[in-house]
Amino acid sequence: MAEDLVLDTAIRDWVLIPLSVVMVLIGVLRYFVGKLMRSSQTADEKIVKEGQLIIRARNLRAAANFIPAKSFRLRKAYYTNEENGLLHVPKGQATNPQAQMFSDPNMAMDMMKKNLSMIIPQTLTFAWVNFFFSGFVAAKIPFPLTQRFRAMLQNGIDLSTVDVSYVSSRSWYFLNLFGLRGLFSLILGDENAMDDTQRMMQMGGFGMDPTKSLSAEKDSMEIIQHEWALPKMGQRAEEVLRKFVKQ
């Protein structure tokens, strides 16, 4: 067993604490910069309309059995007919988001702003940490861990003999980067806290195509069967009333 390393208190004062403070400050700063750069989103009429249309079509699908067959057929035709049905997307008109992004400079601009506020401070802080604090063992976790955690906690020091519960400075940086969400939600208010993991997930979700969901909705609309639920209601109402009268 390796002897316990004694960490200099100077490391605590000059590495551990400054690193944490800087990470928090950068998070706050980024929040305000993002707020400054955020352009007010004016929704496009077409997109709003499509969203609402999908909700309405979904309602129809879910509750189709509650309206008379005639009304249902009317609506189905209204949504899905091949000429001018609401859900019908003419071929070739389907816009793909990539092309839309190039045609609309605002969108590209927004993307860039988002990226700027995310990537630039991250690269800078990473470079800064690497330059000043590389190779420090900055902290010790008060419980033992298995070897698997070595990659997570000792990024930047390649010594297999050091006990895994020691944390390297670069790993401390990563832990802070991903783990400060709770603190931000305290400082900045609940909705404003957005840690980087979430941001990355958002990036992944970008670029869904509304016309696709329209035509999917159309397909599922076409296959539903209408079975009017109301005729059964008469009998059930009789039962209910019988109970009511007997009471």
Partner: peptide, 25 residues
């Protein structure tokens, strides 16, 4: 006839407590 069914379903949904629906039926 359709109206009757919808009155019946109102009765059903309110547990027979809706006077208007009872009259309607």
């Amino acid at each position: 006839q359709t109206a009757k069914m919808y009155y019946a379903s109102t009765i059903n949904l309110t547990g027979g407590k809706n006077t208007r629906a009872l009259y309607g039926v």
